[in-house]
């Protein structure tokens, strides 16, 4: 039994990590993680609603 990790996953936008449990050449379990967070939702608090799109469109 071995656990492998592919990080970074390339050719995507964003940062992704995939871990897989390999058992006899077969993947028996897998986990994915987004490895970057900015908290853009928190930046929306108390902001002029008219300008929210300018930030959110840059996610």
């Amino acid at each position: 039994m071995a656990k492998i990790a592919i990080d970074p996953i390339t050719r995507i936008e964003g940062h992704l990590r995939i871990e897989a449990q390999v058992d006899g050449g077969k993947v028996t379990d897998a986990w994915s993680s987004g490895t970057m967070w900015r908290g853009i939702e928190l930046m929306m608090k108390n902001r002029d609603p008219r300008e929210v799109w300018t930030l959110l469109s840059r996610v």
Binding site: A5, P8, I9, T10, R11, I12, E13, H15
Partner: peptide, 13 residues
């Protein structure tokens, strides 16, 4: 360049 390169994981690194 993560977004456009062919290799992934340890090959990219």
């Amino acid at each position: 360049h993560e977004t456009i390169m062919a290799g992934a994981g340890k090959y990219a690194e």
